[in-house]
Computed example of a mutant assay.
Amino acid sequence: MQGKTKNNKGKEIYKGKQSLKHLKAATNGNVESIEITDKNIRAFDCPARKYGVDYSIKKDKSVNPPRWLVFFKGKDADSLQAAFREFTAKKLKKQERPSVREQLKKFKEQAKNRVKTKTIKRDRGRDR
């Protein structure tokens, strides 16, 4: 649960990531969902908080690979689309970058294949 506050009547209001039960109670059952097949669903949390989306995430294990269902309030549809756009842009940007381990492996190979030339220069540094 991201956060909860109390309104002036003393009732708790949940914001951000929350349980499906609280989400349905806040919207009187008016909940929409979207399907995601990504493994790194936690990266979605940051853009969702940025756009103020109230959502709930459930894992559907009946299919292989498992898919994720994101439930959200019907009025948050535009905010959710903006959050997903930012989420996918970040994901694509990370995929375009080369892997650090692959770069390290390449540089190790270059270091092994490098010819070592050792020159000894003896100079006492005395000039007369």
Rank of each mutant, 00 (worst) to 15 (best):
K50T: 09
E12A: 08
E109W: 05
K4F: 05
E32Q: 10
F44I: 13
R128C: 13
R97F: 08
V70H: 01
K61T: 09
G16P: 00
E12V: 10
N40K: 02
R114H: 14
E35Y: 09
K121T: 11
K17A: 12
G10S: 14
V115H: 08
S62D: 15
A111T: 14
P98I: 10
I13E: 10
Y14V: 02
K39Y: 05
S33V: 10
G29S: 07
L92E: 09
D123K: 05
F71K: 09
R67N: 02
I36T: 04
A48T: 00
T117S: 11
R49H: 15
K105I: 09
Q110E: 13
I34E: 15
K75H: 06
L23I: 05
M1D: 04
G16T: 14
R97K: 14
G52A: 08
G3T: 01
A89K: 09
A48L: 11
W68N: 05
E96H: 13
K94H: 11
S99G: 03
K11C: 07
K21Y: 08
Q103M: 14
R85N: 04
K90P: 03
K24E: 13
K6D: 07
E96F: 08
E12T: 12
K94R: 15
Y55M: 02
K9W: 06
S33E: 08
P66T: 10
R49C: 06
A82R: 00
D76K: 00
G52N: 15
I57N: 02
Y14R: 06
D38Y: 05
D38H: 01
K50G: 07
A89Q: 11
A77P: 03
T37S: 15
L69G: 04
R42A: 15
V31D: 00
R124C: 14
V63N: 01
D45H: 06
K61A: 07
Y55D: 01
D60K: 01
E109L: 11
A89H: 06
S79I: 00
I13P: 00
Y55L: 03
Y14A: 04
K4A: 11
P47E: 01
R67G: 02
N30P: 06
Q95C: 10
N64E: 01
K21C: 13
Q110T: 10
L69Q: 06
R97L: 12
K59R: 13
F71D: 00
D78N: 14
Q95V: 05
W68E: 02
F44Q: 00
T88H: 13
D78I: 05
T88F: 12
Q95R: 04
Q18R: 01
K24C: 06
K118P: 08
V63E: 03
I57H: 05
P66R: 02
L69M: 11
Q18Y: 02
K15D: 08
K118T: 15
N30R: 12
K61V: 02
D123I: 00
I120K: 09
P66A: 13
L92P: 00
K24W: 03
E102W: 09
P66C: 12
R124E: 14
V70G: 01
F107K: 12
A83N: 06
V31R: 01
L69H: 07
Q95T: 04
A111P: 03
G52F: 04
D60I: 06
S19F: 10
I36G: 04
P66D: 03
H22K: 05
